[in-house]
Design a protein around this nucleic acid. Structure first.
Lengths: 216, 216
DNA sequence: CGAGCTATAATTAGACT
DNA sequence: CAGTCTAATTATAGCTC
């Protein structure tokens, strides 16, 4: 959008493409932030950089101010971590339960696929595409989450293990909350379980069939 | 960005905010598309509309052209569905295996949280925030995926069940591929498993502690 | 290659219908 | 409230360093 109007097509020149990418990604992120702030909505943008190892380029979360303040308060409290763990635990159980349900669902899919055939309606195809696309994004997210979890875990191990067994540090030795692994089932947000492929390997499917006009 | 420079702050006037939201969301999506096309990267934007029931406002996936064409080809093939199912099945197994690992990880977390305390480093706090934020997004995605799956399932059941057992339709009755639930482990993309809470309930944590300066 | 620097394209705030 | 219009603000393509 400047010196010259640019065609909406892939930029062949690599350096130009890279420059445009950087600039536009930056601009995009700014827009996301602005929208979030101006309208107080949760918003995020994700951009797969070509060569950067499968990275979540940007993500942001905007919470309403009061909620944000509450979050801040609990962010560095020990109890928050305990609470998180309790919930994780409960959700693990939920998840195991859902595994059974997923098996059932999978069975149904299977039966349907084998028992019937032909001319998958465009509608269905689109839906599949939708699913795979969403799944891709989820894959990115899940990986990021797991990396963050690992980081967090390391971050806690590192400063702790090397420390001598009993060092009396005067500051903040009070709030020794008991580790109540309670957490009501009602509070626990919907347990999530993901079992979808993020990328469909195209090579596996035989060639030469229809061409759906479902570009966008 | 017009008639008047607008402050980067929440817009109090509701109708104005709504209008801005609509305009800017539209613009944002356009930017996402453009970036994707110009630089051939996978990109997506997600915006939580205030009142629209927890909706993924926009998501998009851009694949490189050759990949896209392959995808098109297999989109409406029966074998694609079978393939998807095979992979799902394999990933289900992987997932069950990962459940064990998650239990281990959870145990470690627990031990750390109960055995040590105090002054959660800002770094750790930020990480936790990151995790929860990402988790929130994943939650949205997972819900969307599950809805899509349900839709897909219904979409296949509907036109199939009411149909009489054996109707001889002449077109495309050939490619009756056997349902080989094989799918090599190498091909299957990383199995995903998600077990994180998307929203931290702030009320659960007692009040009046530190205020982290970790806004953004 | 990255960091400025315009000139110009694109977005959009506010008014109007 | 949903569009349309237009001026003013932003984003950025192509350069230069």
């Amino acid at each position: 959008m400047a010196r010259k109007k640019v065609k909406l097509a892939w930029i062949a020149n690599e350096s130009a493409r890279k420059a445009t990418f950087k600039k536009r990604r930056k601009g995009l992120m700014k827009k996301v932030r602005e929208l979030s702030v101006l309208c107080d909505v949760k918003a995020c943008g994700v951009v797969y950089a070509p060569n950067e190892a499968q990275a979540v380029e940007v993500w942001q979360r905007f919470k309403s101010i009061p909620e944000m303040e509450k979050t801040k308060k609990m962010m560095n409290q020990e109890s928050f971590l305990r609470h998180l763990i309790a919930k994780l635990q409960e959700q693990l159980h939920k998840q195991e339960k859902e595994n059974r349900e997923m098996e059932t669902r999978l069975f149904m899919y299977r039966a349907l696929a084998s028992g019937e055939g032909r001319e998958a309606p465009l509608h269905a195809a689109m839906t599949i595409q939708d699913v795979t696309c969403l799944a891709w994004l989820v894959e990115v997210k899940v990986k990021a989450v797991q990396e963050r979890l690992d980081l967090l875990l390391k971050g806690r191990i590192m400063p702790i293990l090397p420390r001598p067994p009993k060092v009396e540090q005067d500051h903040v030795e009070k709030e020794k909350v008991a580790v109540t692994a309670s957490a009501s089932a009602a509070e626990a947000t919907a347990a999530m379980r993901l079992n979808i492929e993020g990328e469909i390997q195209a090579q596996d499917c035989q060639e030469g069939k229809v061409n759906l006009p479902c570009d966008r």
